[in-house]
Amino acid sequence: MSANCDIAFTLNGVKRELSVPAGMSALAMLRERLGLTGTKYGCGEGECGACTILVDGMSVNSCLLFAADCDGRDVVTIEGVVQSEAGERLRSAFVASGAVQCGFCTPGLMVQASHLIEQHPGADEAAIRRGIEGNLCRCTGYRKIVDAIASAAKPDPGQTPFSEGQP
């Protein structure tokens, strides 16, 4: 068995200290050690986005991140995202827009969408589509997911909408 690493990080706003095997993924740590099953295993190779989490404000496929590399970082999962006001707004938009069917991809998309909105408030349709291209959904055809994100990302008055072509 591989050596363990002692790590300390912030998880959804709470300090955590943990000893994890060096080879363990952040996904396995969240699901199997910490019981946070909202983060999903979809492919294990960073291709589907079902395991998306935020690490220091960046969206990351947690299946490709070593648990040990969470040391010293600020980690937010779907369970943390829905605690925020913006996350709650997004969740309501996903529900009201019909963006959820089987729901397996939904937590990853919620996390990615919250990141997208924070980075690009008022993102337009094209920017939203590009922003979630790393998240696969087999049920919805994405249309209602894009609608949900757009309705949660309504720009503040006076702000220029972010567009894909802009720097």
Binding site: G38, V82, V95, G103
Partner: peptide, 15 residues
């Protein structure tokens, strides 16, 4: 809206 959507969108649904 789908009845199970609030749980699914919160990561609470246990598959």
């Amino acid at each position: 809206p789908k009845m199970d959507a609030p749980d699914k969108a919160s990561g609470r649904t246990r598959y």
